[in-house]
């Protein structure tokens, strides 16, 4: 870790100066970039503690520090309801996705059956379509099944929509788990079910955790679908609610928006920072070419 500023043996003046300059340049770049990264964050956090409601008066370091915006957020808007709605969706989506994609992934990885290749290919092709291409059809479908304005109905779309991607992810992961493990278990007298629960499932837990986490995170900031399929304020999700604070009829709720953003972004940011290694590994698993 020590920065080697001491001269190296036999180092000429020129090389030493160049080395010094490059170290300074590097640190300068790092500092400038860090400022560029942090300034917007400080600004929005500061704005949330600002007096007044408008953008114009918001400063990174507020003149009069106040918790007013946070209080008003819970009193004047349905922020808490939005938060709970989205939390419900996130949890149910997490469970449903793990179950649906987990079973699909296991079946495609471990079992042989007719139409397997065709199935894999079509799942691949399905992934390519942007979700909202079918938005109108889903709207009509939901309208007729009375599923409009129901947050949990969104889980259907999220979980099912992600089946293709997650299936390939889990399948790819399971393909790296040698079949000899299964066979050893059979030899020792375990049934198919026992092998699955006691051996395969524990091994799958990293990738299942990854799917669980990403599927928990996904609904928090999805805008298009909830905006289109949910209309009443009580059933709204967080993303749509926040968006409407600064893009709705009254455009002057900037500080409240700042407060709302901080409340929802802070835990997620911290979570991501702690889990960074794990998440990146999972993200690149899909493109693994080694």
């Amino acid at each position: 870790m020590a920065v080697q500023l001491k001269r190296k043996p036999k180092e000429s003046n020129k090389t030493y100066i160049l080395r010094l300059l490059s170290i300074i340049a590097i640190y300068l770049i790092l500092i400038i970039l860090s400022v560029a990264v942090i300034y917007p964050v400080i600004w929005i956090v500061g704005s949330s503690f600002n007096e007044g409601t408008s953008l114009a008066s918001s400063r990174a370091i507020p003149k009069n520090f106040t918790f007013d915006n946070y209080i008003r957020l819970f009193q004047k808007t349905k922020y808490k309801t939005w938060y709970l709605n989205t939390l419900k969706i996130a949890v149910v989506n997490m469970i449903a996705s793990v179950f649906l994609s987990g079973t699909m992934g296991y079946v495609f990885a471990r079992l042989k059956f007719a139409g397997k290749k065709f199935g894999l290919m079509s799942i691949l092709i399905l992934q390519m379509f942007p979700t909202f291409m079918g938005m109108v059809a889903i709207y009509v479908l939901f309208l007729n099944f009375g599923l409009l304005d129901k947050p949990l109905a969104l889980v259907l779309i999220y979980a099912v929509g992600q089946i293709p991607y997650n299936t390939w992810l889990i399948k790819g992961y399971l393909n790296n788990v040698p079949k000899s493990l299964d066979e050893a278990a059979y030899v020792d007298g375990a049934t198919k079910f026992q092998t699955f629960t006691k051996i395969i499932l524990p091994i799958m837990s990293p990738i299942l955790t990854f799917v669980a986490i990403t599927q928990f995170m996904a609904p928090w900031f999805d805008f298009i679908l909830p905006n289109y399929l949910i209309s009443s304020d009580e059933k709204r999700t967080l993303a749509v609610g926040l968006y409407r604070l600064i893009n709705g009829q009254q455009n002057n709720n900037f500080t409240m928006f700042a407060a709302g953003s901080v409340l929802v972004a802070a835990p997620i940011t911290i979570l991501y920072i702690f889990l960074q290694k794990f998440l990146v590994e999972g993200l690149t698993a899909g493109a693994n070419k080694e």
């Binding site: 920065v3 970039l33 900031f221 953003s261 940011t269 920072i273 960074q276």
Partner: peptide, 27 residues
């Protein structure tokens, strides 16, 4: 190799990725 406190710099520079994109964009 001359950079000290690597983890510190990395954690700071990762913040834009960690913050939910929609929030950053609206901000």
């Amino acid at each position: 190799k001359y950079v000290a406190f690597k983890r510190f710099w990395r954690t700071i520079l990762i913040i834009p990725w960690a913050i939910p994109g929609m929030i950053s964009l609206l901000v």
